[in-house]
Amino acid sequence: MANSLTIEKIDAAYGAVRVLEDVTLDVKSGETVVLLGTNGNGKSTLIKCIMGMVRPSAGSITAEIDGVRHNLAKLTTEQIVELGIALVPEGRRLFPKLTVEENLLLGAFRPTARAQMKHNLEFCLECFPVLRERARQLAGSMSGGEQQMLALARALMLAPKILLVDEPSVGLAPILVSRTIDKIKELKDKYQLTVLMAEQNFHQAIRIADRGYVIVHGKIAFKGDTAEELNNNDLIRKFYLGL
């Protein structure tokens, strides 16, 4: 079944500050698309627009879930989550004073996800064996890498169709970044997810991306149709890597 995401010509602003300008982007079914950009260029805002946490002032955001089209700009965040679009927020954003297991169960807060909570929990713990050992531990007491795994697992509790990952590398040691990225790839293959990942770490992100976009000052500066194209582009070297 097709699960895709189409963003057309959206503008977004925080009060008078314009953050996104005429952004057009699409993620086709089963793809991993990476959204590259340094700090303050609008990556997280774009993700928040998709989740309905920030409302774009113009343009449209549509998602196709199991072949049915939905206009996300008209739905609330809860409804978007209910559709099967899960977000792994930037900086993990766990519930530090709840246990690992409680964090996971909260991932299944919406009715459809709750119906298969036990089944999904078992799946998550299979994917992330470390979380099974730590089920009773407080989430805030785990290491950064484990917390990132928990954040991913929590999103999986929704049995999502489309997974949005906002900067999984934040605050992690290089080896853990690499492991996290591998895990996203593994999950994507296992569950046939459609993935949109915002990331700063160019070299890591490009390892698993099918294609990507570079966002500079709220505009799409470059669209690479293959990972290769992104890798060998002069614009990227100049704008993004500063070479």
Partner: peptide
């Protein structure tokens, strides 16, 4: 539990679909 998620991290609560 919903209340606790709001106390701990409101943005994450929304991302989990907590109204």
């Amino acid at each position: 539990y919903g209340f606790a998620t709001i106390r701990d991290d409101e943005l994450a609560a929304e991302a989990c679909g907590v109204p």
